[in-house]
Design a protein around this nucleic acid. Structure first.
Lengths: 145, 145
DNA sequence: CAATTTTAAGATAAAATAGTATGAAATCTT
DNA sequence: AAGATTTCATACTATTTTATCTTAAAATTG
């Protein structure tokens, strides 16, 4: 049950690194993060662009530039990060992948699947970056899959 | 949030077709199912092999051969079908895809993710093929994604 | 024995995902 | 102002996964 794409996981790990290792408001060099977490620099760069556009990160170009959280980590939910990196329709998919599935023509799994997705979304909404940062296991952040 | 592979979805749709359209114990021609549901015959064939090996389906070769449910649909859970077609480790994966994540070295999402997977699994366990068959929307079964 | 139908394994193709390359724009240092 | 640094943006390539097709074998029927 692979739920998140690699890009999304990279983004999450990187955000957790920033939250747990760096002072708030300090611009962190992307190259440093990529080396520290063993993630391709250019790939991470792309992921960060989406997070910057969404207002989760703030960026600064030029020497000593980098990225930093644009808001306190308490105000960034896991849901927002995932929706940004996986697409806003993340929670809208039918379990059986049927395009026409919906209130009007529900698939046999529609009812319970919709309830289940709502629960999951709520859980993701109430989990903030700060919450996750607190639970972090620093050694593990850098270990890939 | 794509959770199931196409093979798994095909298998489910095909099982639902058998349950809802055919008398119990009657061998159904695989080619017929593949044409009726617009699924590649050979692909479906492979999927059915797994279901047969698992004892969900029973098969019969030769003229008028085919597949039929090996057990009453009340006794086949959605969980069993999914575990068969997606692999037995379906519910064991870390949200962040970290190989080392577990009780000993939990990732920041470990706790709630494990609870969530358990719930989902329970839901899948108590949903039977018969339950789903009852909710079926015949036209929709054949529409692809 | 000939026709039919599932089983099985391997090759091929298509799609999705991941990663790379390049150059432009912004900012800093001198 | 010039040159260095660093993010931004887009386009391209490679890899992996998923899906499909090909071929041939085994079982069953008539």
């Amino acid at each position: 049950m692979k739920v998140l794409s690699k890009g999304c996981v990279y983004g999450l790990r990187a955000l957790l690194y920033i939250v747990s290792e760096k002072p708030r408001e300090e611009y962190v060099n992307i190259r440093e993060i990529s080396e520290e977490l063993d993630i391709s620099f250019h790939f991470l760069t792309k992921t960060f662009q989406s997070l910057t556009q969404k207002g989760i990160l703030r960026s600064y170009r030029g020497p000593n530039g980098g990225v930093t959280l644009d808001r306190p980590p308490e105000e960034v939910s896991l849901a927002e990060i995932i929706l940004t990196l996986e697409g806003e329709d993340f929670f809208d998919k039918c379990l059986l992948g049927l395009a026409g599935c919906g209130q009007a023509a529900p698939c046999p799994a529609h009812e319970f699947w919709i309830a289940h997705k709502a629960e999951l979304r709520a859980e993701f909404e109430r989990t903030s970056l700060a919450d996750m940062g607190r639970k972090i296991n620093k050694e593990k952040l850098r270990l890939g899959p």
